[in-house]
Design a protein around this nucleic acid. Sequence first.
DNA 1: CCAGTGCTGATAGACGTCTATCAAAATTTG
DNA 2: CAAATTTTGATAGACGTCTATCAGCACTGG
Lengths: 342, 342
Amino acid sequence: MTRPTIHDVARAAGVSLSTVDRVLNDRDGVREKTRSRVLEAIGSLGFERNLAAANLSRKRRYRLCFILPDGQNSFMHALEADLAEEAAAALRDFTVIETRKVPAFDAGALAELLRSLDPETVDGVAMVATDATIVRVAVRELRARGVAVVTLVSDLPGAEKQGFVGIDNVQAGRTAGSLLGRFCRGRTGRIAMVSGSMLVRDHAERRLGFEQVLRTEFPEQTLIAPLEGLDDKDRVRDQLGAQLAADPEIIGVYSMGAGNRGVAEALVGLPAGRDVSVVVHELTPYSREALLDGTFDAVLHQNSRREVQGAIQLLRSLLDAQFPPLFVQPIPVEIYLRDNLP
Amino acid sequence: MTRPTIHDVARAAGVSLSTVDRVLNDRDGVREKTRSRVLEAIGSLGFERNLAAANLSRKRRYRLCFILPDGQNSFMHALEADLAEEAAAALRDFTVIETRKVPAFDAGALAELLRSLDPETVDGVAMVATDATIVRVAVRELRARGVAVVTLVSDLPGAEKQGFVGIDNVQAGRTAGSLLGRFCRGRTGRIAMVSGSMLVRDHAERRLGFEQVLRTEFPEQTLIAPLEGLDDKDRVRDQLGAQLAADPEIIGVYSMGAGNRGVAEALVGLPAGRDVSVVVHELTPYSREALLDGTFDAVLHQNSRREVQGAIQLLRSLLDAQFPPLFVQPIPVEIYLRDNLP
DNA sequence: CCAGTGCTGATAGACGTCTATCAAAATTTG
DNA sequence: CAAATTTTGATAGACGTCTATCAGCACTGG
């Protein structure tokens, strides 16, 4: 009924409290034989240290640093706002969160920031990654300095981070493909794509999933090479608008990142009879409006609040060296149509 | 940098530790004037009690009871398995979870179980509700005895529970309607519906949302009155099979609850050329298979693991009397197509 | 066998809060 | 104004773990 304590372990192993403590916090000065006796007692009693008591005693604090891209990306703004709220709540659990920003799409700046982080000041880092070797190297060095690292929203495959919190972007792309394919059923034509930048991993992955599905399941449609919008609505509006005007056979648009406002503006400029199905990413005030007025058919969304919570949770469990490591629920891709807006 | 403690509060208010403690745990024997001085100090210092230390000191434990329907509903089985795992993990936070089962669709049995719960043994209850007045009364009595109560998966509107953890079922129904309507685009005909039982709130709500959307957005389709499958796959297969055979104009099926296996079996019996779009609820091994082989077009899903976690979290925060009450993230309706299965 | 290590035990105090008890002070009552 | 009562303060010990220090014991090598 009541959990075993270190006292019980000491008694069961026939050693003193001090020795149990030395084993638990692996300090040296314990013979191998004694150590294993203690570990055995721990195992047979099913002892698990009371984290609350331990943290209380050592005045543990979790100092986390979140690194976000700076810029006009409205999803990132939403994420930052959620982070601010969660940071306030996290204080109650002795978790102090600092937010840093680096220019978007700038791997060098990100790597430099990572290099500047001091393990005396920071225990764990969550970052929206830019995909570059220089960043991978910086991550490895940071880990070597004893700092926990996870990626957030945009992953960094092959790097020595300890986890990723975000949606499965290949799956998101597949979802988009499946929806757009079905929405275009009965018509045959060309599909336009808009990305933020192919330098960001998440967009590259979405494109991959999208093309997979369209090629295999909807071979009657033809894909056009994606535009790079670079989070700039005017650029997106102009380029996509030109593409749509030039090619009357475009019947579908997939926008895989920021720039929804530009997409919507390009579409409202079309002649009345033209029917284009549109799937975009991220629910924002603009995409919401476009969904309601029928300009967009579906919006794929990731819940940034949940992502922030997940990253905090994951970092904390890594810092506690919990075993088994806490299983953080994957973030689902949410799908919004005009009729199920929250 | 470091949080204020009761010592700081005592000093700021010019009273002793004992008095601060009396105020914090509202024991009596404190003059109103003194109390308000202490409260003022708490406010100005921004003091928040260290829950970990408090719980350690009073050996607090959270004794929760989860009430699930018994039967062959495979979503409920999945939920039960998730609950078992989460219960094991929750032990680490001094949360002891007991699982109870009552016959499905049996409001009397549920009410009786609620009545039998002893506040000496249970601090909080999470239940999959059956919608009936007798249950509402039992909930009120339970609350009056000082037990926290939340509903899980299926809500009980108008009852004195302190929260609901589950998806928004009206929205889920709307989503289903929107998807099925779009999938049937270009064809006109009749839509069949299968529910578990209209006595369960979630199915009633899904139907509502579904009909709203179909009536207003897709008036070209005609709705047929729903079959009640009562979680019985054979019954569903027979009744839906008969309906499909008798009415060749049925082009869509919405199944709003258990019985996916029966739905799939009814559909595979159809002649080769017949094209019926199908949307069902809950991702299970059967619905997954049906999605992959093209029998189903979409599956709406709720993440039972997340629901269990949410209910535990919510109950704990209610028992801590936290203010502001913890905001538990709403459970999103997940949408699966053949191409985005996890 | 003696000095120098290495290992182990005992003890004390801390973390922030709770509970209990008793004494002292302040207030009310008669 | 004394007695009764209420309010307040002081103190001690607990919760489970951590850290530090010191003493003693068991080894090892010379």
